[in-house]
Design a binder for these strands. Sequence first.
DNA 1: GGTTTGACCATAA
DNA 2: CTTATGGCCAAAC
Length: 126
Amino acid sequence: MARSAPRSPEPGRVVGPGFHARVHERVRQVPPGWVTSYGDVAAALGARSVARHVGFALAALPAGSDVPWHRVVTARGTVAALGSSVARTQARRLRAEGVRVAPNGRVQEFSRRRWLFLDGTSPGQW
DNA sequence: GGTTTGACCATAA
DNA sequence: CTTATGGCCAAAC
């Protein structure tokens, strides 16, 4: 049988083997010009409480990845880790898509640009 | 195979 | 507004 089939988390659990891959897949669904939050991605995967792990999964992305990680901000609509090199890259890439980001990292009209993953399966629901 | 490293969120005071 | 706390664990080294 499959000697290294895509592992899945144990029943009742959201995080587990392959978690990073599932996070990346979700983030790929966010269209240009839209943003979402770590917690929203976590909720789409089944549990808001794992928002932190979504951050971990994005931090683990290799440079040059096709995952649009820059479209993921905090639940308060601000760029995370402000001041860091990734934050500056993120703000630049967002502005390039027409998303206005204030100098303090706040995404303007965040609630209006927030992508909600309504197309996906989210057991957790809102 | 144990240790290290990570970009969060809700709530309370 | 700030600080603290509990929730959460894979992947790379």
